[in-house]
Design a protein around this nucleic acid. Structure first.
Lengths: 334, 334
DNA sequence: GCCGGTCGTCGAAGCGCTTCGACACTCTCA
DNA sequence: TGAGAGTGTCGAAGCGCTTCGACGACCGGC
């Protein structure tokens, strides 16, 4: 409320105690009598005291800030990223931390900078590629970090993600159970596979493996994101595979186009072609018809990433790899 | 490179100068001889020195961090937000600042906290509503701030946005010039209008005013975002207005559905119905057919917001209101 | 009644940086 | 030639906080 900024010394004076006592009340690192605690807390309230972040960071060697590194590359599905980001911020606040947003255009220099300057205590990286430039840097950094996604060599790192391999397999299983004998996977744009992005590749692997397990036929194709390209892909797919009756779509931007293309090609969903998507719930629910889907648990992944990074900050050990099991929600499209 | 963290004192010793000299070399706030500067810079390089952010903030009363406040509400178009965010981060780095990401779930308390704790020097707020709870808080905060979007009473604030009123009018002008005499605006979902979000309302106002100017007929409707709802809206619109031949769509999520609905209703674009969108360029280009559009200049707005907030930080005066003029790109849909 | 142990509080020493005033020089120009 | 005006550099005083060691006060056990 006051115009000027309030310091801990003023709180101490107001409460009639030493500065260090105020600090201990606030941090809980030493026992303080109930009476003194009350007086200090009242003074904090009355004066509207907020500890100065810089001073606190300097003295305690903890900034209470974590970095969130977003690459923001082409072909990324942005709404999902945003939900991750939002989940990370919310989860970080639960641990009394704030989130510094870093994008890729500074390259690894940005990561090095915020770490070396003690601006952040730890890092959460999103959209990790199989062969990611940032990974070797992380290994040499003293600050703990957590990756959302998996690089090619995850040993010694801490990675979280949806288990995309299981998700791909789960979709096949679902379609097999429904009696489909020939199916296809429409995946990410080919540029994403070329870049070696893990989640796209792993979904495809799970899909292909499960075909064998269930003894059914199937192909896996990349899928671009404009209507015309999607239309062509779907049309050719149906021409080449007249017996095809099930589709797994792992591409959020394309899924609407796939449905539109099927409509235009005179195929009814799910009567002629069943569709299962791997996408956030709201996208699946908003489609017409609503899609059976494996949801991408952005909130859960974000929360988990923060939990892990906090564990590491506190010196607890974190597992190398955390794979969240896929959840299939059956809706009208299958 | 070294394991431990390097301090300014070590740089000073290495270069054979005083600590303050190193500081002045780095900040440029006093003249330093070319020779000394060289030696210091070499030592900085050799030791891999990065100033400690907390210490710097404490001593200089500047954290070199700005807050970016994202509400992340329902009905927001997320990809656009992300592009704003990314532009803000990039622009901030140009001014040697980092960006702290704040979401709304902490409410105004979060803003108050980061400001009072001197975690940030200034604030950039996105997705401002006509009647925004955060606005009164900003007025009493000593830290400078910039809004992306306009509240109902922008006097004394600094606001940046695309000139949506002009954008709405520009679309009408374009369709009028093409000879269309009855057109419609499909806008944001009704919840967005109900919330009083400025950009939706202002586009509609510009649209309606321009109808009069050009002496043509038109209606403005809200537009939901699922295919089925869009389909119904478009179908009813065409039924109620048989002479309608032009459509302005200001809803990124719905624009694909609008095109699909028109296809399904047997209307060709642009021969039967011309479509003009207000959306980011990539969405317009990716549609089928590619859409004539007024682009939403996310990068430019983000950059401008940062420029303004830096002006205010440096004590320069910033204009209350910055409206970026709309740019119409003519493509195949009109 | 004395000793060792908590418990609650205090004072002071930093954390690593910026910035102010001072000081030794070196130029000017009267 | 000496006052005055820069230059370039230094030392030291904080910035607001955390944390360490110290120290009374009070406790129970012998």
């Amino acid at each position: 409320m006051s115009g000027r900024t309030v310091t801990i010394a003023e709180v101490a004076k107001h409460a009639g105690v030493a500065v260090s006592t105020v600090s201990y009340v606030l941090s809980g690192k030493r026992t303080i009598s109930a009476d003194t605690r009350r007086r200090v807390l009242d003074s904090v309230q009355a004066l509207g005291y907020h500890p100065n972040a810089g001073a606190r960071a300097l003295a305690s060697k903890r900034s209470n800030v974590i970095a969130l590194v977003l690459p923001l590359r082409a072909g990324m599905h942005v709404p999902v990223l945003m939900r991750f980001a939002s989940a990370v911020v919310t989860a970080a606040r639960r641990f009394d931390h704030d989130v510094l947003l870093l994008t890729a255009d500074e390259g690894t220099a940005g990561i090095r900078r915020v770490a070396a300057s003690a601006l952040v205590d730890a890092l959460v990286l999103m959209d990790v590629e199989l062969d990611d430039l940032r990974v070797p840097l992380l290994r040499e950094l003293p600050e703990p970090s957590v990756l959302i996604g998996f690089p090619a060599e995850p040993a010694g790192l801490t990675c979280v993600d949806l288990d995309f391999r299981a998700a791909g397999a789960r979709c096949v299983q679902h379609l097999a159970e429904r009696g489909h004998e020939e199916i296809a996977l429409l995946g990410a744009p080919s540029v994403v596979y070329d870049r070696g992005t893990g989640f796209a590749t792993r979904t495809r692997e799970g899909f292909v493996e499960a075909l064998g397990t269930h003894g059914i036929e199937g192909v896996a194709l990349p899928c671009e994101e404009t209507f015309d390209e999607v239309y062509e892909t779907v049309r050719d797919l149906l021409l080449d595979h007249p017996g095809l009756s099930g589709l797994v779509v792992h591409n959020e931007s394309a899924v609407g186009h796939v449905l539109a293309a099927l409509r235009q090609l005179g195929r009814r969903v799910p009567d002629d072609v069943a569709v299962v998507a791997i996408c956030p719930d709201d996208v699946a629910e908003r489609a017409s018809p609503p899609l059976t889907s494996v949801l991408i648990p952005a909130e859960e992944v974000g929360r988990e990433a923060v939990r892990l990074v906090m564990d590491k900050l506190e010196g607890r050990v974190a597992p190398d790899s955390t794979l969240l099991p896929p959840q299939l929600a059956v809706r009208a499209s299958s």
